[in-house]
Simulated assay, not measured.
Amino acid sequence: MSLETVVEDIRDEARERAKEIRADAEERADDIVAEAEADADEIVAEAEADVEAEIEQEREQKLSSAKLEAKQMRLEARRDALQSVRSTVEDRIAAIDGDEREELTRELLDAASTEFGDEDVRVFGRADDEALLSDILDDYDGYEYAGEYDCLGGVVVESDASRVRVNNTFDSVLEDVWENNLKAISARLFDEEQ
């Protein structure tokens, strides 16, 4: 074997080795690219899932917020309607006059009188009822009209001797009736089942 043949064999062997190295490198490069593409696909899938989750969460928050706002608006509308009904009732009560007003005022005064013995008693009432109260108080010994009380009607009766004050105004009666029947009033007004 000549030196040239040996050199040629080494060169052939080197070329074969270079081909193998190149093939291995290309295979490794393909594996790296495939792995990178798989990682990229996974990252994209995770990002899409995150975006979808965020969109769903935001949608749920907006839906929840809209439901809460709608509920608050319904409650506010109900409050307004109940207040309107109450105002109408107050206006009708304030408009009671004549014998009916006298009868109701006497009943409230009689009910308040049970708290007082033979004491001197001061009676307060609505400014427009001064004449009515003065006439009614003529029938009660030791009772005198003492001035105005801001109310729809009825009486506030007090005595220094017993330090008792009884509020028997139309307002206080309405407040008790309103509170005791608010659920039924609301149910009837808004067609709800009780």
Rank of each mutant, 00 (worst) to 15 (best):
L3Y: 15
E4F: 14
I10C: 08
R15T: 07
R15A: 12
R17A: 13
A18H: 09
A18G: 04
R22S: 11
E26C: 05
E26D: 05
R28H: 02
A29Y: 12
D31P: 00
D31L: 13
A38P: 00
A38L: 12
E42C: 03
I43W: 05
I43S: 07
A45D: 04
V51S: 12
E52N: 08
E52C: 01
A53M: 04
I55E: 10
E56C: 03
E58N: 08
Q61L: 05
Q61C: 02
Q61T: 09
K67Q: 09
K67G: 01
A70I: 09
K71A: 06
Q72W: 10
R74E: 09
L75H: 03
E76S: 14
R78A: 11
R79Y: 06
L82D: 01
S84C: 02
S84I: 02
R86E: 04
S87D: 10
D91Q: 07
R92T: 02
I93A: 00
I93R: 05
I93F: 01
A94E: 12
D97K: 15
D97L: 03
R101G: 00
E102P: 00
L104M: 13
L104D: 02
D110I: 15
A112V: 09
S113N: 06
E115H: 15
F116C: 05
F116V: 08
G117V: 07
G117K: 06
D118W: 10
E119G: 02
D120S: 12
D120R: 14
V121H: 02
V121Q: 05
V123K: 12
G125I: 11
R126D: 00
D129E: 02
A131N: 07
A131L: 08
L133S: 01
L133N: 00
S134Y: 04
L137T: 09
D139C: 07
Y140L: 11
Y145E: 00
A146F: 13
L152I: 05
G153N: 07
G153R: 14
G154N: 07
V156C: 03
E158I: 02
E158T: 15
E158D: 10
S159W: 06
S159K: 06
D160R: 11
D160V: 11
V166Y: 05
V166L: 03
N168Q: 12
F170R: 03
F170D: 05
S172R: 10
L174D: 04
L174K: 04
W178C: 00
N180K: 11
N181G: 06
A184I: 04
I185H: 06
S186G: 02
S186C: 04
R188T: 06
R188V: 10
D191C: 01
E192A: 15
E193K: 14
